[in-house]
């Protein structure tokens, strides 16, 4: 069993994994970070998106051993230590960007990756970037609104569908 270590939300973590163990299962089962959700387990839905060395990755489609030495950020690393939501999370709350909430961790991690590379995305760019994140409740509209708001843009500019 390979021994691995990685920095997760700023904290050094380590463990022993089998070759087949996924990053998602290491985070959830070994580290107890169950905010990362496993929806489809086939890399379609994006509920399991985390940041690996700053890039959005589907953690159900990456081996834990591949993340040895990496810096990981999960949804647990987004809010401030006192629980204050970050800008994106707060915008999701303000604009009702979630209903059941299952997809939300992945949505927030993808939105965060998008805004890092494109701080003022258009509505079309947001929708394109979320191609790999599936939400079965909201119809995406309020998620797009939340990301527009989080990027400091006028939400009213989005036409109702």
């Amino acid at each position: 069993m390979p021994d691995i270590k990685m920095k997760v939300n700023g904290v050094e973590r380590s463990g022993s994994v089998e070759g087949r163990d996924l990053l998602s299962s290491f985070l959830r089962d070994d580290l107890g970070l169950t905010g990362t959700h496993v929806g489809c387990d086939t890399s379609q839905c994006g509920a399991c998106v985390v940041h690996v060395d700053g890039e959005a990755v589907k953690s159900c489609t990456m081996l834990a051993a591949e993340a040895d030495g990496a810096e990981i950020v999960t949804i647990e690393g987004m809010a401030a230590p006192d629980g204050t939501l970050n800008t994106i999370q707060q915008a999701f709350q303000d604009h009702h960007g979630l209903q059941c909430g299952f997809c939300t961790p992945g949505m927030v991690m993808s939105a965060s990756a998008l805004l890092k590379e494109n701080p003022k995305p258009t509505e079309a760019e947001i929708r394109a970037y979320l191609e790999g994140n599936i939400c079965r409740c909201t119809g995406y509209h309020n998620i797009v609104k939340a990301i527009m708001a989080a990027s400091g843009q006028d939400v009213g500019a989005i036409a109702a569908e």
Binding site: S43, G46, V49, V52, E55, A56, V57, K58, T61, M62, S110, A113, L114, Y129, E131, G132, N133
Partner: peptide
């Protein structure tokens, strides 16, 4: 190709 997370890997 795929989606952004897929393109990163």
């Amino acid at each position: 190709i795929g989606d952004p997370a897929v393109r990163n890997r």
